[in-house]
Design a binder for these strands. Sequence first.
DNA 1: GAGCTGACACGGC
DNA 2: CGCCGTGCCAGCT
Length: 100
Amino acid sequence: MPALEDADVERVRALIRSVPSGHVTTYGDVARAAGLGNARMVGWILRTDGADLPWHRVVRADGSLAPHLATEQALRLQAENVTVSGHRVLLRPLRHVFPA
DNA sequence: GAGCTGACACGGC
DNA sequence: CGCCGTGCCAGCT
């Protein structure tokens, strides 16, 4: 019965807000921590209700960024001292892990 | 009601 | 290593 509920959306928003400045997380991690089946849903939530969130701290599993956001996202990340090479971030040392 | 689209992940090449 | 194709779930036309 996995129809996206308001509670799920709020959970995702809270998780992203909990990511400290200078750190980044992945869509997959957020999805798993929020109890969502697919990481695509996280992207969908951010697209609809993520304007007021630090969405730039959320990247793909391999550290790459979505084409349309790549430019601005990279800019914002660099402003937080996050190393960005091209359209890709080094999440190895900066990856924020959510508590199980 | 059916089909296309998308702020993703993963396995191959 | 990086690019490409396939699978997933929900929403929109």
